[in-house]
Design a binder for these strands. Sequence first.
DNA 1: CCTGGATATTTCATGTTGTCAAGTAAATGG
DNA 2: CCATTTACTTGACAACATGAAATATCCAGG
Lengths: 140, 140
Amino acid sequence: MPSRRVDPVTVEVVELIGDVVTRYHMEYEHAAASHQLTGAQAKVLNLLAMEPTPMRRIAQKLRCEPSNVTGIIDRLEGRGLVERRPDPADRRVKLAAPTEEGLRTAERLRESLDFAREPLAGLSPAERAVLRDLLKRMLA
Amino acid sequence: MPSRRVDPVTVEVVELIGDVVTRYHMEYEHAAASHQLTGAQAKVLNLLAMEPTPMRRIAQKLRCEPSNVTGIIDRLEGRGLVERRPDPADRRVKLAAPTEEGLRTAERLRESLDFAREPLAGLSPAERAVLRDLLKRMLA
DNA sequence: CCTGGATATTTCATGTTGTCAAGTAAATGG
DNA sequence: CCATTTACTTGACAACATGAAATATCCAGG
């Protein structure tokens, strides 16, 4: 076993990113659960709050099969948070759109999420700018 | 609606972290799938490769109910990657331990994961150190 | 020692998320 | 106008997750 490129700083960064991922998920699920939503439902509701979206596009955003989205929307619709509308431009398409109550829930959800994520950015403005640039380059 | 603290850099950082989380998951799932494992199975197998672990502790690490771990270990055991051993110190406890093949799979898995994560750290040593410090403080 | 309460694991019922294959309906381009 | 493609749904099935109840074991106080 050849001694690998075991730069200790790199190892640390990888571990820290793992920690960030874990923490992000925990807080996201927690915020969703506090509104009786699952993570997937919260994600979709948040998406629809931006704009009504065809099923197909939801699947693309979620990176899953369209048949999966059917079930998620079914459950949100069953709870009166979302409705299916025809797309006037294409009768094959169904637009998923939030109801009034869905919009209110999405609003409250976003507030919990902001609140949950804010501590993550407990850095000075200059540091946040540095972090932003490093993350950007990391993802490039 | 009072104009919120909408520091654009903070918003950007939050979005970037979301991107990192998404990407991390995709690559993790992909690496796991390339060894015919689900994400949860890969996580557990990786854990057990460190040391044999009681079911209860696995549940704590995964932050899930112990009854859930039973199924995950069942499936890993069914594929000959893991075995249940008695704990000599406490007959209630079962230690999940990787088999020979489990260890080999974990090893190969770790290599794919390193490979998958490495591009994320495509920064100079100095930049990685800065990133490490910022992430550390962010998680503090 | 013995008993009652706590602990570790499993089983069962149930729900959500995910896949894939097949089916229906509507659009589109030769 | 017909063949193909596209959008969505349905059904079958697996993995993951929870909660409640059952079993076996441990442990502490009497």
